[in-house]
Amino acid sequence: MEKKIRMRVNGKKVEVEVPTNRLLIDCLRYDLGLTGTKEGCSVGVCGACTVLMDGEMVSSCLALAVFADGHEITTVEGLAKNGELHPVQKSFIQYGGFQCGICTPGQVVAAKALLDEVPKPNEEQIKEWMMGNLCRCTGYYKIIESIQKAHQFAK
């Protein structure tokens, strides 16, 4: 059973026909070739698959692709503008906010959503917001530092 969905992905209008049981993460990765978003736990706990739907973070492994019909999706590929990295991406590089990297797309997308709401979050706010994004290298101190200092890279 197929369904045609229309959505805006990273600012671009997209029309794609998907089986109704297609997950949003699989639609992004396999139908649209946006492999930046990673799948970790598959049950909404680890945060690796975090994307933004209408600016709010969701687990793309728990969302059916048909849920995105008529909505705006932002993935890690949509953070850079005109070839220039988003401030939070620059900050993750500058302050070593990643080790192996598998959780990083989810981390920076979640952090971007936080910074959109609170441009200069304190440590408590970061911990509460990011608690659903796990890093098995346990690089949490550097992740917190990267988010806290991201405003330095904002214009």
């Binding site: 909404g44 945060g47 975090t50 969701v58 687990s59 509460e128 608690m131």
Partner: peptide, 9 residues
């Protein structure tokens, strides 16, 4: 309840 990501949905 769970995390913000889950609470958003």
């Amino acid at each position: 309840v769970a995390t913000i990501r889950v609470r958003n949905m």
